[in-house]
Computed example of a mutant assay.
Amino acid sequence: MKGPEQADRSGIVLVDKPKGVTSHDLVAAIRSTLGIRRVGHAGTLDPMATGLLIIGFGQATRLLKVIVGHDKTYLATIRLGQATTTDDADGKILPAKADSRLAVKNLGRAMVESTIADHLTGDINQVPDSFSAIKVNGRRAYDLARQGKEVELQSRPIHIDRFQVLDYRPLTLHGGPPGETSQNQGRDLTGTDASKTDATGAETVGTDRVDTEVVDTEARDTEVVDLDVAVTCSSGTYIRALARDLGGLLGTGGHLTSLRRTRVGRFDIGDPALQGRIVTGQVSSRTYRNRQGQEETRNRVDLAQPAEEILRDSISLVDAANLIMSTVEVDREEAAMLANGRFLKAQVNGPTAAVARDGEGPYLAAVLVPYKDSLAKPDVVFHRGSQW
């Protein structure tokens, strides 16, 4: 049982999400460990993905909508030569056509890089995949897709600042079927290591590890190309859709086999100043009976750090605000005005943190947004009591 002083605290937690659990599973683990009900995250990672997940608790959940809009960096592996139902390794492999197999044979690194530069870099329009978390008439697209319903999503503008090929590997998958297969986590089909280093010595994401259950009686070798890539992109970009679209442009088909998010705005998982504050966890499975009395098994996250350590290493509201937006200093009288919803005479461009000071130090009074006539209005206000 957590004390009331802990339940009233606020902060940002940086989590290195393990593979095999949902972002919601991480939120539930933080909520349970800290004994704090108000917990949320900034930007979903799929179960197969790993890397930086930003979680806010207490009043810091109000900062998440600012954080989620920042640009992001990913390391990923794209497999050309195979398309799947979900555009990633969790889906079923779609039957390959003869012309797509020929396209794989004719591929080269220069062709791939020029296609990326010409069509998938800069300002582009992207149609999210049908297994995304976008809502369609109030329901998540992935829920509709899993029910076999057709999902049509509109294209949306995104910006790709960097889409760099780090490694190019032609592979032959032995014993692969010409028809449909399903993928589950298991051995590496190619027998290669799942990670490697590039020319700079930096670790890059390698071939995903999959088991293939053959549902076609005739089997043959399958030629594919695995690309290790680094992508820096705007909020709202789907890396699975980039893999799908690259495969479509090249005529090979393509899907994502691994994904790791390394940065969200100024929160970088490789930043030495932040590495000691990152929460980690191990995945375990548990079996239970659902409401229908059926036995089910699902994964859960066991955090490696206790509550006291997570709270100690969390990022305060003021420090988080300094990392994600511009700030302005306000006095205690102005802070009280903002707390009552009154406007501040100030020129701001975009979300801006209003920081005040008292005998205990600086605290976040409000997040301001532009208003007419050189005024700023408080979009969100914060109470002093739960900041430190």
Rank of each mutant, 00 (worst) to 15 (best):
Q305S: 14
V229Y: 03
S374A: 15
E218S: 13
A117N: 08
R109Y: 07
I158V: 10
T232N: 08
T297G: 01
T222P: 00
A60D: 02
P306T: 12
S386F: 11
R139A: 10
A353I: 09
T73P: 02
L249V: 04
V224A: 01
M48P: 00
M111C: 06
G81M: 04
V215N: 12
L64S: 02
P170W: 08
S23V: 13
G11N: 05
D71I: 12
H159P: 00
I160F: 07
V165K: 01
D25T: 06
A365E: 02
D373N: 15
L249D: 01
V165H: 01
L14R: 04
P128G: 02
L323S: 13
V13Y: 08
L94D: 02
T50C: 11
Q59H: 07
V205I: 14
V229W: 06
N322R: 15
Q154N: 09
G35F: 14
V229M: 02
S23D: 08
D268Q: 05
R332E: 15
L52R: 01
I78S: 04
R263N: 07
P95T: 00
L189Y: 10
V318E: 05
D208V: 15
V151P: 00
Q154D: 12
Y142K: 01
E113G: 02
R31V: 12
V66I: 11
R209E: 10
T327P: 00
V224S: 00
V27D: 05
S285Y: 11
R169G: 02
L364M: 08
T207N: 06
A376S: 11
K377F: 13
K149L: 14
K372G: 08
K149C: 03
D228E: 11
G270T: 14
R139G: 04
T204G: 03
R187W: 14
D211I: 15
G20F: 07
S285V: 11
Y168I: 05
M325A: 09
A42Y: 10
L344F: 11
T222C: 13
D331K: 10
D193Y: 12
K2D: 12
K97S: 08
P178Q: 13
S10H: 03
A7M: 14
T197H: 13
A117Y: 10
T121I: 10
V225W: 05
E295T: 09
D46H: 07
F382W: 06
R300C: 11
Q154M: 11
V21G: 02
R38I: 13
N290G: 00
V328W: 14
A335R: 06
T237E: 06
K65H: 11
T85L: 03
A353S: 04
A230P: 00
P351E: 08
G293K: 01
T50H: 05
D143E: 15
L317D: 02
G122Q: 03
R286M: 14
G56M: 07
R332S: 15
L26M: 15
R101H: 09
A98Q: 07
R9A: 12
A76P: 01
V381A: 09
D143M: 07
K92V: 12
G385C: 15
S314H: 08
V215H: 15
A307M: 13
L63Q: 02
T121G: 03
D123A: 14
L303I: 14
A356F: 12
I278M: 09
E296T: 03
S155K: 08
N125C: 10
M1Q: 13
T73C: 12
S114Y: 04
V367A: 07
L189F: 09
V330W: 12
